[in-house]
Write a protein that binds this DNA or RNA. Structure first.
Ligand code: FES
Ligand code: FES
Lengths: 136, 136
DNA sequence: TCGATACCTGAGTATGTTAGTCAACATAAT
DNA sequence: ATTATGTTGACTAACATACTCAGGTATCGA
């Protein structure tokens, strides 16, 4: 049930940028604060930009900043974009359902569904603003 | 947040055996019921045996059966044995803690802890008996 | 006792994922 | 023009996953 380093790093970066409120931060800055290797962080920031969470300015005095208000950035969506569905099995995923062979009689499916609901509810009701303001 | 096929297969096998209550089942039988490739299932059953969930009889008329009552088999423990800690990050794992570099100031840690608690509570309060009797 | 039927053991393999690195390029400010 | 920045795409090492397979060993029934 681990979350990958990529997902963790993305959230760290979003938090770092959220705390800057308005100012641009260079990759090197963010790398310093988050302890994520700069070259790897680069990839992740780019992806977050394509997903619409960040905007960037090139050249001297360039850098990254949030493209949305922190309370508009839902953690569940970020994780889904970076690591795929939250559900533990394809057959209980709402966002990307995939059939199981035993599905008709499977005694596990309702259980997986319970887990999915529990995780998804938590992640989808938490925003970047909640994390930054320590209001969970 | 996916659970691996190994974990899923193990649970399928435990359910199949739980429904047999007392009778031994051969690997081929279980494979037929669970649709898990027999050679792979063999590995998994062996592991479940070493972990104390199953016992076996060799030779003709041999096979596997549960070593414990279904209400003594906690799903959380099975998953942990097969796939490692339930926690999404090492720094919030109770059973196998691992330090994070940012741990002092990290705004994510309390959030991961919440997720861990939610998952662990669900998995640790569910037993094989609950699955078999459809009482979740 | 013999042989068939099971489980047991350990090695091997194909495929994919993760966690990065690196070189070269494009753009904006000074 | 120079320099500081983001951009792009390819590349790699290491590991995990999902299996297969070739034997070995115990047990039952005839
Ligand atoms: S786990 Fe998907 S149907 Fe059983
Ligand atoms: S995630 Fe472990 S301390 Fe931040």
């Amino acid at each position: 049930m681990k979350v990958s380093s990529r997902g963790e790093y993305a959230l760290r970066a979003l938090i770092a940028l959220g705390l800057q409120e308005g100012n641009v931060s260079t990759i090197a800055d963010i790398s310093g604060q988050t302890l994520v290797p700069a070259a790897y962080l680069e990839q992740i920031l780019l992806q977050l930009k394509m997903l619409g969470y960040l905007k960037s300015r090139r050249g001297k005095k360039g850098g990254y900043m949030l493209a949305k208000a922190p309370d508009q950035i839902v953690i569940g969506e970020v994780i889904r974009s970076l690591e795929g569905p939250l559900a533990p099995m394809g057959c209980v995923s709402i966002t990307s359902y995939e059939a199981c062979p035993l599905e008709g009689t499977c005694l596990l499916k309702p259980f997986w569904a319970l887990i999915r609901d529990s995780i998804a509810q938590l992640l989808d009701q938490t925003t970047l603003a909640h994390l930054i303001e320590r209001k969970l």
